[in-house]
């Protein structure tokens, strides 16, 4: 048993995901209250180079052809062995397509408690998680001896998890990884050809509050008037009203425009993680309690269907006169 804090480093096709650095920063807070070290856990094939800038006291590294790219089963088995052998105080995973595939399974396998959607650890070692689409916060203790946590961005800066110097790598042996039941066949690239929304300084984002496809004329007209680009939240894309290339958030793009005008978007954590580096967020939402107002600088509770035509008119006037 140890007081160390483990962080599962997420990487895809040779790129370390930002959430890894964010978790290293979070782990530092936890380690200072537990008195242990921060250990970055890296799984891969010839992937030592990815450890170069991890702000950790040590890197625990497992190398195997079965770990070349992420698959849930190979990660689950490798991490189960490591956690069982070392019993760290906590293991942090991204609340992501990688972390969420393994953390829950490990909780069942090792009978260890699991807390999900954590944004912050308090100085006295409690978790703070977002729940109900960001409308409610939940706080609680981290049970001993070992707790598994999945984390969402927002509480820590990724720069805090980056170091100028590489830390020492300690290799560990993964378990036998054969007869696996999950195999990556190939990656499919997103369709190219559409505009790159991450390059536009003025984004007009539409959410489920737009209600139907025909109403998209309103933001489209505004975008034409102000030379902005229309993007969307997930339900709008899932409905097929806009292509995936326009999706903002966890499964889409992260954007940093000068202005992000959010029309009928509630501000769910999965959306907010894609926009929280925008210069100014302006939110239009009829629900005064919508979490989007927690990240917006300006807002209005007017119906977007009433406001947007007026806004387009005013923009045209301002430009013409």
């Amino acid at each position: 048993m140890s007081q160390d804090i483990f962080v599962l480093i997420e990487h895809l096709r040779g790129q370390v995901a930002d959430i890894s650095y964010i978790m290293l920063a979070a782990a530092r807070t936890l380690a200072s209250s537990s008195g242990g070290q921060v250990a970055a856990v890296l799984l891969g094939k010839d992937a030592q180079k990815l450890a170069g800038n991890l702000a950790a006291d040590k890197v625990l590294y497992a190398d195997s052809p079965a770990l070349t790219e992420f698959t849930s089963e190979a990660y689950q088995l490798t991490l189960a062995k490591l956690i069982e052998e070392q019993s760290p105080r906590a293991v942090l995973f991204g609340h992501t397509t990688i972390g969420a595939d393994v953390a829950g399974w490990l909780s069942g396998k090792l009978s260890l408690p699991l807390v999900s959607s954590c944004v912050n650890f308090t100085s006295d070692g409690k978790f703070l998680s977002q729940t109900c689409g960001g409308k409610i916060m939940a706080e609680g203790d981290l049970p001993s001896p070992t707790i598994l946590v999945t984390m969402i961005p927002g509480g820590y800066k990724s720069e805090q998890g980056q170091a100028a110097q590489a830390s020492a790598i300690e290799s560990f042996t993964p378990p036998a990884l054969d007869n696996l039941r999950v195999a990556l066949k190939k990656y499919i690239e997103p369709e190219a050809g559409d505009v790159d929304i991450s390059k536009s300084p003025f984004l007009i984002a539409v959410g489920r509050g737009i209600q139907n496809k025909d109403n998209l004329d309103l933001p489209n007209e505004l975008a034409a008037a102000i030379n902005g680009t229309v993007c969307a939240s997930r339900p709008v894309v899932d409905q097929g009203w806009l292509p995936t290339s326009r999706l903002v958030g966890k499964s889409g793009k992260r954007v940093k425009p000068k202005i992000y005008l959010a029309l009928g978007i509630s501000g769910a954590p999965e959306h907010v993680e894609g926009i929280n580096e925008s210069d100014v967020i302006v939110a239009v939402n009829t629900d005064a309690n919508a979490p989007i107002f927690n990240v917006a600088k300006y807002g209005t509770t007017l119906d977007l269907l009433d406001l947007v035509p007026q806004l387009t008119e005013k923009v045209k006037q301002a430009k013409g006169g």
């Binding site: 999950v182 990556l184 990656y187 997103p190 499964s251």
Partner: peptide, 14 residues
């Protein structure tokens, strides 16, 4: 399986 940025991983699952 979805990855950030619209990348899809095709997973064969027994």
């Amino acid at each position: 399986k979805e990855y950030p940025g619209g990348i899809i991983g095709e997973m064969e699952v027994k």
